[in-house]
Design a protein around this nucleic acid. Structure first.
Lengths: 164, 164
DNA sequence: TGTGCTATATATAATGT
DNA sequence: TACATTATATATAGCAC
């Protein structure tokens, strides 16, 4: 099975229903058998409501625990523009450094630069949520690359340079 | 298999490691194959850090989306949803669907914009031959990426989204 | 511990209704 | 569509090291 978006709409819907059910079952089993606290949230156009495990309050508990992590605060932003500019400066420095360190990162940097340029002059009057969404899409893509190239983790890089 | 806490500590740990890995893989597959936004968080004494999917920032995005939701749920009037709420639900579903549909396109557009800014004129003034040239440049770049990353189907994306 | 192996259970895509 | 069936793929417990 190719690990990519299922093109056919009908097949994708069918697969979604099956896999969602199985996945939620899996996380339930994991939690029950191993006695661990866990939660899952799935947003899909196939469902009106977000699909969650365990209950809404159960998810809230785990989510609040996660939000309480110290790392959370540093991502909260005061002034939108200044943080953005700082990110760009930091990002560019990081790009330079990484280009020196690792030529294999070329592709990644290419995408970084894309984001940089787009952010300086947002092409479609992008809002902050748009940029956040885009950022996460790119991050996913970078993780994809990192997996294939056996990099350890690009999350830090993304967090440092791209998150708003 | 009895669906209850595994008593033996060693067996529970082993089961946890296996199942955690599988579950995270499953949610990744669900998200990738079906193009849905999802996250999972697992807290266990077996791991120091909470185990999550996708990245920290990815989880944050979903978590914030979830936290924002109960807010307008509380404004329900009696048993029936107001017209306003219904349109909000519809709107959100539409957004979710569009997000799903546009993910691949967004990445491609980034590359397009990047190339646009680095070497060619703004797209609005472009002539058809210019666009064709740009398209082939992008295709070449994508094939370059595909060669490095062992992708097989970049051409499809280009054909679908960029051929002008 | 963790890892590799294997028999069994489970999940899933494809297909038909 | 959703649901049932089935052939195949995947996950996993138990055991050996």
């Amino acid at each position: 099975m190719k690990l990519a978006l299922i093109a056919n709409d009908c097949a994708r819907r069918a697969s979604y229903r099956r896999r969602k059910k199985s996945m939620l079952k899996k996380i339930e089993e994991l939690s029950t058998l191993c006695g661990v606290e866990a939660c899952a949230i799935v947003y899909s156009s196939f469902d009106q409501e977000p699909q969650i495990w365990p209950s809404e309050s159960g998810v809230k508990n785990v989510v609040e625990k996660f939000r309480a992590m110290p790392e959370w605060k540093k991502h909260k932003m005061g002034n939108q523009e200044s943080v953005m500019e700082k990110s760009i400066v930091k990002g560019k420095r990081k790009i330079t450094k990484l280009e020196e360190e690792n030529k294999e990162m070329e592709i990644t940097m290419f995408m970084f630069q894309c984001l940089d340029k787009t952010r300086v002059q947002p092409p479609h009057n992008m809002t902050l949520p748009d940029l956040n969404l885009l950022s996460s899409v790119i991050e996913q893509k970078l993780n994809d690359i990192s997996r294939r190239l056996d990099f350890t983790d690009v999350t830090d890089i993304v967090d440092t340079n791209l998150k708003l």
